[in-house]
C-alpha cells in the first residue's frame, strides 16, 4: 500500500473504496479540506490547487446512468487541472461483452492513473482495485457504498449542526436496504460520533437493527423524535412497482415528509436528500424548497468533497 502524505494527514490506501477505510482523523481532515476547496472555488481563489493534478488523467467509468455524480467528479477533476475522460461505458463496449477488468486495463494502458467507477454490482471497485494498477475511486457500487456522497453529507451536516456530529442523532428515512448512500452515511456519521435511526417499510429496513450504533424505528414519528437532522432517500419507482411496498401512495402516507411531520424532529432540524428527489413522494416540493432543506448545499459540497478526494488520492 502506498501511503499518501497530504500535509497534516495521510491516507494509507491508494483507493477510496468506502468511507469505512478512513479513521476519524482522516475523515475529519478530509471534510476540512473539502470545505476549504469548496470555499476557494466559490470565491475564485483556488490558486495553486488548480495545478495540483496537472498531467493526471482521470477516467470516468459510469456503468449506471448518473448525471449529478458524474458532472460533479468531472468538474472536480478539471478544477484541479486533471484531464477527465468520460468512458461512456453505458451501452458501449459492455454490450459487446468486454469484461469490466478488460475495460479498466485498457483505460490504464491509455495512460490514465485514476478511475472514478460507478457500477450496478456491489464490490466492482474492489475487483478493479486488485486487478489493475489504477487508483480506484468508488462513485457508487450497487447497494454497497457511495463514499463521496457520505463525505458531502458529512460536510453538510457538520456545518448545519454547529461544527460537530458528536452525540447528534440523524434519522435516515426510506429504502435503506437498497441504498448505498445510507450504508456509507452510516459508516461516516457513526465514526464522527453520531447515532443513526433508520425508518421505512419493513422490507426496506430489514437487518439494520444488527448494525452497531443503528436503531430501527417502527414508524416515522418514532424515527424523527429526537432527530437533529433528517436524511430522506430516493424511492426507486421501479422497485416500488416490484411489490416490496403496497403502493407509492401508502409509502407517502406512512413515510413521506412535510413541514408538519418534520416538526416531530428537533426544532429547526434540517432535511437532506441525495437527489434526485421524487417530489410529493419522499417529501413535499415545498419542503424541498424551504429553508430547512440542505439539498442545494449538498450539491455544492459534492464538488468540494470530490476535489478533496481526488487531490488526496492523486498526491
Amino acid at each position: 500500500m502506498t501511503a499518501v502524505a497530504t500535509g497534516r494527514q495521510t491516507w494509507t490506501s491508494r483507493h477510496l473504496l468506502d468511507v469505512d477505510q478512513l479513521s476519524r482523523a482522516d475523515l475529519e481532515a478530509t471534510l476540512d479540506l473539502a470545505a476549504k476547496l469548496r470555499d476557494q472555488r466559490t470565491s475564485g481563489e483556488l490558486g495553486e490547487a488548480r495545478k495540483r493534478l496537472t498531467g493526471h488523467t482521470v477516467g470516468l467509468a459510469f456503468y449506471e446512468a448518473s448525471t449529478r455524480t458524474r458532472v460533479s467528479f468531472e468538474l472536480a477533476a478539471r478544477e484541479l487541472g486533471a484531464t477527465a475522460v468520460d468512458l461512456s461505458v453505458v451501452g458501449s463496449s459492455v454490450i459487446k461483452g468486454e469484461s469490466l477488468i478488460d475495460t479498466m486495463l485498457t483505460l490504464e494502458r491509455t495512460g490514465a492513473q485514476t478511475v472514478v467507477l460507478r457500477h450496478a454490482m456491489a464490490g466492482a471497485p474492489y475487483l478493479v482495485a486488485r486487478s489493475t494498477g489504477l487508483r480506484v475511486l468508488n462513485a457508487g457500487d450497487g447497494a454497497h457504498a457511495h463514499p463521496t456522497q457520505a463525505l458531502l453529507d458529512a460536510v453538510t451536516l457538520r456545518e448545519a449542526l454547529g461544527g460537530s456530529l458528536d452525540g447528534k442523532t440523524i434519522a435516515i428515512i426510506g429504502d435503506v436496504a437498497h441504498s448505498r448512500v445510507a450504508r456509507s452515511d452510516i459508516h461516516a456519521l457513526t465514526r464522527l460520533g453520531a447515532r443513526i435511526v433508520v425508518g421505512g417499510p419493513p422490507a426496506w429496513v430489514a437487518g439494520f437493527g444488527a448494525w452497531p450504533a443503528v436503531r430501527v424505528a417502527p414508524g416515522l414519528r418514532e424515527a424523527l423524535e429526537g432527530a437533529d437532522a433528517v436524511m430522506t432517500l430516493r424511492v426507486q419507482l421501479e422497485r416500488a412497482a416490484g411489490g416490496a411496498i403496497g403502493s407509492l401512495r401508502e409509502y407517502t402516507r406512512s413515510w413521506g415528509l412535510d413541514e408538519e411531520r418534520l416538526s416531530w424532529a428537533k426544532p429547526g432540524a434540517p432535511i437532506l436528500h441525495p437527489g434526485p428527489t421524487n417530489e410529493g413522494i419522499e417529501l413535499t416540493a415545498e419542503l424541498a424548497a424551504s429553508e430547512r432543506s440542505l439539498i442545494g448545499r449538498q450539491v455544492t459540497n459534492g464538488v468540494g468533497a470530490r476535489m478533496a478526494v481526488l487531490s488526496l488520492l492523486a498526491a
Binding site: A122, A143, H144, W211
Partner: peptide, 10 residues
Amino acid sequence: AGPVATRLGL
C-alpha cells in the same frame, strides 16, 4: 442473509 449481507449491500 445476515449482518454481513446487510453491510455489503448484497
